[in-house]
Design a binder for these strands. Structure first.
Lengths: 225, 225
DNA sequence: CCAAAAGTGTTTTGAGTACACCCATGT
DNA sequence: ACATGGGTGTACTCAAAACACTTTTGG
């Protein structure tokens, strides 16, 4: 029954925090429509056996050379007119990752790949600006109700790094004493016997996130500030 | 690029509370596949100009004669194999409503429509059982963080009615003194000068939900019990 | 000894939780 | 008068929030 000419696509909003700012991974389009505008990495669902999640993972890898990331489905956008070529329903995904160690490489459909600060975005293709705002909203919730912040951090991090992630995503400063107290009390941070030397001042202790401790908690903590 | 034979559908999990139990609206399939099994109301996205939300609304009305409801998108399921006829991506929706005043009527694709208690479901078509569990999870969150409970209640309701909604959805009893205290303190309940006489015992005062008061609140209250 | 960021405690306030009896009504 | 659900108050505990100075390091 109908539906034969509706296309299904996936698009991923990949976020990372760099120098205290939240950034999103974009690709510059090589072809029409919206040629030369920046867009989210993504593409059509091929008719193979892959799941939607796998399609999103594959497209992200093909277009940006970024792999091995945490992905979760966000929302499905399907209004008529969002793609001038014809009706397209896109399933959007959220990826949280760290820029450290990535080698960005534009895929065949792109003229470039880059991280953009979410507060200084260029003009975007399709309705991708709305998809990004939706993703920002979702990350805020995730930070407050889940240990999502750790996906945005390297294995070892300082409490300041962690706090910076919260500040970048929530868009506001938080009290460092209360922040530390709350996080240390949850018991999900494992103190290491290492420090990070960043400059000519006191080195900061390094921590790791302990998933086991997190899962042992009787109630999920609320990391709200 | 590819995708021509992927179908897009919408399916709605319509929930209501009746006599202290959470119920879901199902239709009995008239045709293969899964003929004679119960399924969620829904169907293919036609290629008209309608949005996904409109398609979900339309399908719900066509198949069950239920209209004018609160709908929100839930999740998109697209694994291969979920529909034996071929690759189908379904965008699922959540509807919250009251059974009061509805006239269920099966559409042309259905052999029947009925409310089923979510704890006593029959065998379901497709992956609809998973979609319903996903919806139940979402309603729990919504009840705790939004005034969703009022969508499941009539205009005027008693505090007991409200508490029953919470108990049905959360699946556990809550202390009535604390429940009342917390809700009355939020200020979102407007006391009416009417009571509801239910039997040979003290009548209960009726209340309405005040959206204006809710929106005036500086912080969203958390209705967690 | 200076600059820079790391690290640390106490007090106050408000909300969550536990808990048991009296009230109003119809029969 | 009784059966039935409606309606109420207090005390305790704990977490959130406000708030400013000392410590460690390299230069």
């Amino acid at each position: 029954m109908a539906g034969e000419s509706i296309k299904v696509a996936v698009d991923t909003v990949a976020l990372a925090v760099e120098q205290g700012a939240l950034e999103v991974l974009l690709v510059k389009r090589k072809f029409e429509p919206f040629k030369s505008l920046w867009a989210l990495p993504g593409g059509s669902l091929t008719e193979s056996d892959e799941t939607l999640d796998q399609a999103a993972t594959r497209e992200l890898l093909e277009e940006t050379n970024v792999g091995d990331v945490y992905l979760e489905q966000l929302y499905t956008f399907g209004d008529k007119g969002r793609d001038p070529r014809g009706r397209t329903v896109t399933v959007s995904y959220l990826a949280l990752l760290r820029q450290e160690g990535l080698e960005l490489k534009a895929g065949s459909k792109a003229r470039g790949v880059a991280w953009w600060k979410v507060n200084e975005l260029p003009e975007l293709a399709f309705d991708h600006a709305s998809i990004i705002s939706y993703a920002r909203q979702r990350v805020k919730y995730k930070l407050e109700y889940s240990p999502a912040a750790f996906m945005l951090l390297p294995e070892k991090f300082t409490l300041r790094d962690l706090q910076s992630v919260y500040e970048a995503v929530l868009g506001k400063a938080v009290d460092n004493r209360n922040f530390r107290k709350k996080f240390l009390n949850t018991g999900v941070l494992q103190e290491l016997n290492e420090t990070s030397q960043e400059g000519s001042f006191r080195p900061a202790r390094l921590y790791t996130f302990s998933l086991e401790e997190f899962e042992k908690l009787p109630d999920r903590p609320v990391f709200m500030f």
